[in-house]
């Protein structure tokens, strides 16, 4: 057999092997995104029916609000103005808590993929604890614990509690994001002489961010809704402003309708923004 013939056969064999062997390091086709669908659906261009129902709901809410304010200014105009006075607190709590949750979640996520057993254990226990206790109970508990130990003001205690509660879920998202990065990335970094922490910092985490950004967006929306729980902690957010108005005027149904409309419109706008973000990420590969 001459060399050329051998070459040809070898190549055919290489191709055959390539098609039958399942290589764990082979690049996955397409990009991975993690979706945690609790609560709102994220409207995207590709998903026509979600986008349509998003439009219906959003414009329905906007039109209803407009009708109420224009045709029934008494009492709705006052109710809207009163409730919206709580919006800054709601946003403040949400934004700072999500930042806190991302920080805690990053460490928890890294901890749960760590090679050290005891670190895994700590992160695991934290996640289990948070998952197993109702959010409202945790919130009140941590709020009082932090308040009595450090004498911080209510807003900070509330942000801290929400960060700790959501940090656990965020940790799971970060862990899933890290695990979605092909194993070959870590191996290539290690093979180049990087330490594991260098590999995480320069190779794994930057790629993880892209994968988990939509999921963080979803958490942000959940957080905005759940931040209404801080109204029990005497923080004047949208819900509490509404409830204070009720105790003055006894217009419970009207006020709660407005509160619901405000939350609905905010979350719908946010979910569309998250959808747009996802579309952009997809476009940039």
């Amino acid at each position: 057999m001459d060399i050329n013939e051998i070459d040809k056969k070898i190549k055919a064999e290489a191709i055959r092997q390539h098609t039958v062997s399942v290589d764990p390091n082979a690049p996955k086709s397409g990009t991975t995104t993690i979706n945690m669908t609790d609560g709102v659906l994220i409207p995207k261009k590709e998903e026509k029916h979600v986008l349509t129902s998003w439009r219906l709901t959003f414009f329905g809410a906007v039109i209803l609000s407009a009708v109420l304010i224009i045709f029934f200014p008494d009492p709705y105009r006052t109710i809207f103005l009163t409730c919206l006075r709580g919006a800054p607190v709601t946003f403040e709590v949400t934004v700072f808590s999500i930042i806190g949750a991302v920080i805690i979640g990053t460490f928890t996520g890294l901890g749960s993929v760590s090679k050290r057993r005891w670190i895994n254990m700590i992160c695991g226990v934290y996640v289990e604890l948070i998952r197993g206790i109702p959010l409202l109970v945790q919130l009140i508990f941590i709020y009082y614990a932090v308040g009595s130990l450090f004498h911080v003001e209510g807003l900070i205690a509330a942000i801290f509690s929400l960060s700790v509660c959501f940090g656990a879920y965020m940790g799971e998202i970060v862990r899933a994001g890290i695990q979605a990065i092909p194993k070959g990335q870590m191996e290539a970094a290690i093979a180049l002489g990087m330490s594991r922490s260098q590999a995480f910092r320069y190779i794994i985490l930057p790629q993880t961010v892209k994968v988990i950004l939509p999921a963080i967006g979803n958490e942000f929306i959940s957080m905005l809704k759940d931040s209404s729980l801080v109204s029990v902690l005497s923080l004047e957010d949208i819900l509490r402003c509404g409830r204070m108005y009720i105790s003055r005027t006894f217009l419970s149904l009207e006020t709660m309708l407005v509160v619901a409309l405000i939350y609905l419109m905010i979350t719908l706008v946010l979910s569309r923004l998250v959808g747009l973000l996802e579309e952009r990420l997809h476009k940039n590969g």
Binding site: G184, Q185, A191, Q207
Partner: peptide, 26 residues
């Protein structure tokens, strides 16, 4: 040095950054 079947280039970095990262950091 090691070269893998599936290349394992770092997708978030440019070609130049892929090559310079380890010399700079390590």
């Amino acid at each position: 040095g090691m070269v893998f079947q599936s290349f394992n280039l770092f997708p978030h970095l440019t070609v130049l950054e892929n090559i310079t990262l380890a010399p700079i950091k390590v």
